[in-house]
Design a protein around this nucleic acid. Structure first.
Lengths: 182, 182
DNA sequence: TATTGTTATACTCTATAACTATA
DNA sequence: TATAGTTATAGAGTATAACAATA
């Protein structure tokens, strides 16, 4: 083990850690609530402490959902953010990059790269705005419209996976609870 | 505008885009559903197309929740993942790094850096396991236990913010729906 | 002066691979 | 051989700052 070894070790630009002298009570593990692993009697790692935290559950769920989305749309190589960009442009052709970025909560600097990639694939095109020559009007190409229709069918399949995972009613309740965040 | 300008432009390792000839119908914007901005009558950007997508709502909600967590625990400089690591170690002292990583769905390589930072701040310590000298038993330091108690009070305040945002009942329903992901 | 799109940088997070010391 | 911890690297994603063209 490099860390904590007695031999001097080379560390590039990282602060020295774990001074060898400091070691806490290495005896029988006792948890911070005073009980000796009472939450481990089932052999699993106790996480009661995180159970009441909305953010933790939401994070884990979001990871699952995105992974399923990426898997389900893997054959067409479209990720969630790319899908959301194409969907917004498809429903609102002519939007500027700023407008799309604001609507989706994406940094405009990042949208540049997302659009570069979609434009290379000839799914989206930038058109110079006639009224404001600083801005681009965004459109789907003919190919992009056809492709988006397919992406939407796959996304619907993905939504069915979500419904299978948490239950149809729960999915609908979830969408209702989070409707402000759409 | 550098992009699409007629003058030659230097592009480092990026594929040439937007051949100047190809420009889609720049006329009146018409959306891909065939209706002319029927979803824009209120002056807002239509997103009906994303409304039924659980992943999108969950992503936006998760961003909000994490930002509030980071803000609420900003004074103690603890981020969600650091909090979850300390909480699991606090509730299950003596766990190995692998066990913590698996339980929280973190890459073990990433946990190394997370623990480096927590160890530098003397909140967590690695103790060589007596039974398996490859592994470290993880413990909170005395300082870590005191600190975690304070973090938990702040996290509880954060949860109240969540309840204010989506409603007390909705928060509880959400936790129930997502209980499998804890 | 302010805004749009762009470029660039830095930092976080994720995903991998390889290395070491152990088992 | 396999596993635990570590190091390193590459790709997303996020957050900023600065710049040119245009308003």
């Amino acid at each position: 083990m490099a860390r904590n070894s007695q031999a001097p070790r080379i560390a590039k630009s990282r602060v020295a850690k774990s001074r060898a002298g400091i070691r806490p009570r290495p005896g029988r593990a006792r948890n911070e609530n005073g009980n000796a692993h009472s939450d481990l009697t089932n052999g699993e790692i106790g996480l009661d402490a995180l159970a009441g935290h909305a953010g933790y559950a939401v994070r884990r769920f979001q990871i699952w959902v995105f992974q399923d989305f990426i898997r389900t749309l893997g054959a067409v190589d479209i990720r969630p953010t790319q899908y959301s960009v194409m969907t917004v442009i498809g429903a609102n052709p002519g939007l500027s990059q700023m407008a799309v970025a604001k609507r989706l909560g994406i940094e405009r600097a990042r949208l540049v790269h997302l659009l570069d990639s979609l434009e290379q694939r000839e799914l989206v095109s930038r058109v110079k705005s006639a009224t404001d020559r600083r801005s681009h009007a965004l459109h789907l190409t003919a190919r992009g419209r056809t492709a988006l229709a397919q992406f939407k069918r796959l996304a619907a399949e993905h939504e069915r996976h979500v419904a299978e995972k948490i239950g149809k009613e729960n999915r609908e309740k979830l969408l209702q609870i989070l409707s402000d965040f759409t």
